[in-house]
Design a protein around this nucleic acid. Structure first.
Lengths: 213, 213
DNA sequence: TTGACAATTCAACGTTTGTTGAATATTCTG
DNA sequence: CAGAATATTCAACAAACGTTGAATTGTCAA
């Protein structure tokens, strides 16, 4: 239960889960400390101000995620023919690392990805924080997409990426809305189904918008 | 400036803008009262608890929006041939009322739609609140889509709608991220460009996923 | 003009908030 | 073991929070 995980990490884990569910302002340091089974002052001791704890949580898994995605991109680039990987392959490389992290049932990663969804959709954090964490990697993907869609206008590619990012964000948020809307036919937590529908959907959208006309 | 708008409405407007930007817990009644140029206690007098004010803000424009969208759907259904409107026409009917509300520069509506984006992506509100406000209308659109995509599996249609909803949500959130990512080539606040890219993108995605295979 | 009612302000309450400094416990190093 | 460094707890703070009841002002019909 309250295993031998270091208290510092327990604070990060609790903050991750709670921030993802309630947002930055919706969670108090006392709630975090309670859930981590730790004294309130310990969060301040390890991380300083509340905002710094939030940033530490956001940054903790970012590099690992970026590395997985980078490797997935390079892998599909190596195993493609001379004209480079297809749009499907690129989208798939972008999504698969998320799926495996979620599907393997790692609750920490699931919470982290829900936190990313919260950040990305928030006018408060969506600009600065997302750029700081992920822009370098995303630019690599944009470059690959440009190559897979020769002649496409840059502007169109960015708008298509915006659509991809939105669909993905709502998936990661995992709100349960699709369950009720579909009267149980779909499950918000079924990430495998979500990604399997997302990949062809997004790829077709890219091709439609970015085809030369 | 501080025009002759009734104080009760000024509270709703201020709450709308602030809740959309900072979320429910990120805004205090005192901030709302200050922005509305009104005493703190007045919000409680008119609306009761903070949560009831939040609900009042969410509900205020929902019916109007639903009505606009319903009319847009019926209009494109009347002007279609026997097989009913196309996927593009249905998506367009779903989005145009939003665009006109935003493009006409009505700041109140822009704030409300950003608030809807916040709600839809939040694990806290995304299920209950969204269903309460919009499910009846969305079901009408789902029915129209079923007709435009004969033979499609219901499950596929719901997942495609999920993708549509996500892309739209991120657009309404208007975080400015695409500006930085695209180095100024795209503008998060340019809703016209957003919708023009979204309609063909989403329609192609629907057709790809929902085609009989 | 009076009286009734609604709108608005004022002052205050009990909580909860983030944060801190001093005190205690634990771990590591020599 | 001694002692230093680190980790953790404890108690307390000032500030901000949502909410309320009483007092004041405004509105409108009789």
């Amino acid at each position: 239960m309250d295993t031998n995980i270091p208290k510092r990490d327990r604070i990060l884990n609790a903050a991750e889960a709670l921030f993802a569910e309630k947002g930055y302002a919706g969670v108090s340091l006392r709630q975090i400390a309670t859930q981590a089974n730790v004294d309130v002052a310990l969060a301040s001791y390890h991380f300083g101000k509340k905002l710094e704890l939030f940033q530490a949580v956001c940054e903790r898994r970012a590099q690992t995620l970026n590395q997985s995605r980078r490797e997935a991109l390079h892998h599909c680039q190596r195993s493609a023919n001379d004209s480079g990987p297809s749009v499907e392959q690129i989208i798939e490389a972008f999504l698969r690392p998320l799926e495996s992290a979620q599907v393997t049932g790692d609750e920490g990663w699931r919470n982290y990805l829900a936190l990313v969804a919260y950040i990305n959709n928030s006018p408060n954090w969506g600009d600065r924080m997302m750029s700081q964490l992920f822009d370098d990697l995303v630019q690599e993907y944009i470059e690959a997409l440009k190559q897979a869609l020769p002649g496409a206008r840059e502007e169109d590619i960015y708008w298509c990426y915006h659509n991809l990012s939105g669909a993905l964000t709502l998936t990661l948020a995992n709100t349960g809305r699709i369950n009720r809307l579909s009267r149980g036919k779909c499950d918000s937590a079924d990430f495998k189904a979500a990604y399997e529908h997302m990949i062809p959907f997004i790829a077709a959208g890219f091709r439609e918008v970015c085809s030369q006309k």
